[in-house]
Every structure is written in structure tokens, then in C-alpha cells.
Amino acid sequence: MTEGRWPHPRPGITRDNQFFWDGLAQEKLLIQRCAACRRLQHPPAPMCPGCHGLEMDSIEASGRGVVHSFVVAEHPPIPPFAYPNLIGLVELEEGTRLVTQLVGVEPEDVRIGMPVHVEFERVEPDYVLHRFRPASA
């Protein structure tokens, strides 16, 4: 996917989301959890909307989920991505959703509701991203 010449887009990392990206660096998919009431949320926030807790921890996701929606980006081609670029919105079995790359499946064969599981890709020496593959593959 990465052609090397173009830097891979990076997130802005704040005190609210750093744990997530640190987790990916260790090939772990983390979900923010309120330490007080155990509510999960993604994208993370500095305060729990349920109990106003400010202390957050995280759990490691099982990595299993289903495709909730998806798109096939074709134009404009933006480096370093390969096109067509299959991008999914995956609902994890823990209940939160996240946007990710879908691999190991042709755009024509993706279905909403398709079971998928996580894997990790080192897109640059110090940069790991999650992506998902059909569970049966």
C-alpha cells in the first residue's frame, strides 16, 4: 500500500488520544474506558459523558467485528494510498465503531454485516496502523 516516497498521513496526537496510538505501536487495538463507570467510547474524549469521570483507562479489543458500512475511494488518488482504496467502518464486538482499511477482499465482494478481524501493518518504521480482513479469509 505504501510506496515510501510520500509520508503516510499522521494523526494529531493530544493527551486525549495518545493511548490509542501508543497501543497501535505495540500492535494492540485499544478502546477507551471510563475508569469509574466502565463505559466504552470511540473516538475517545477527556470526560465520560455518562458519569463525568475524568480518569480513563482502556481495554484491548478482541479484534473481531462486522462491517457496518464501507466506501471505495477512486478519485482523487492521494499518495501514498493505492487505488481503489477500500475503507470500512467496522463495529467491534465490544460495541464501538472505527474507520479502517479493509484488505483481503475485492470491493465487489464486501457486504455490510461481513465478519472481519483486525491485523496490524507497519506503514513506516515507527508507525503502525490497524486494518481488517474478512474473518473467513
Binding site: S69, A73, I87
Partner: peptide, 30 residues
């Protein structure tokens, strides 16, 4: 530049979901 708004785009841009058409397409598919 780490702000709440660049953190927001960070959930999408690393995967190539970075144009208005692509953001809308995700909801349109559903």
C-alpha cells in the same frame, strides 16, 4: 499541530478517508 480538530481528522486520514465525498459516501452506503 496537535489540536482536537487535527486529532479528529486523525481517525480518518491515515486510512485515506480524507475528502468530503468519502466522508459522505460512508453514510450514503448505509
Amino acid at each position: 499541530v496537535a489540536t482536537t480538530e487535527t486529532a479528529h481528522f486523525g481517525w480518518y486520514a491515515p486510512f485515506g478517508l480524507m475528502t468530503p465525498a468519502s466522508w459522505v459516501a460512508m453514510q450514503a452506503q448505509r
